[in-house]
């Protein structure tokens, strides 16, 4: 489990098939801002299985300037994205 305030990195791995981790975030570092509940794993649930074990879901925030190298907005602007535990690594 990760804690609120913890720095994490989204795994940079490829995944064949349905998954809920946007490509634009892979390899990016962010901060856990909310710890949601655990939910069925969409990567297996999408294919007719029970989706167990459930995966913890986190709201992770990223600096826009970290995600987009040519960021044109304000330096304080951030992206908040829900990411499942098995896609996060300690940063």
């Amino acid at each position: 489990m990760y804690q609120r305030g913890q720095e994490v990195r989204v795994a940079a791995r490829q995944h064949e098939g349905h998954h809920r981790t946007p490509a634009y975030l892979k390899g990016k570092q962010g901060t856990v801002t909310r710890v949601h509940a655990s939910f069925l794993n969409p990567e297996t649930h999408a294919y007719g299985t029970d989706g167990l074990p459930e995966q913890a879901l986190y709201l992770v925030s990223f600096a826009q300037s970290d995600v987009w190298p040519e960021h044109h907005g304000d330096a304080a602007d951030r992206l908040y994205v829900d990411v499942f535990e098995h896609w996060l690594e300690e940063a």
Binding site: R20, F39, L57, S61, Q64, L79, Y80, D82
Partner: peptide, 15 residues
Amino acid sequence: DADVELRVVDSTADI
């Protein structure tokens, strides 16, 4: 305004 922090929330999962 520039001093307003913009937070874009990408609802990728169950929330």
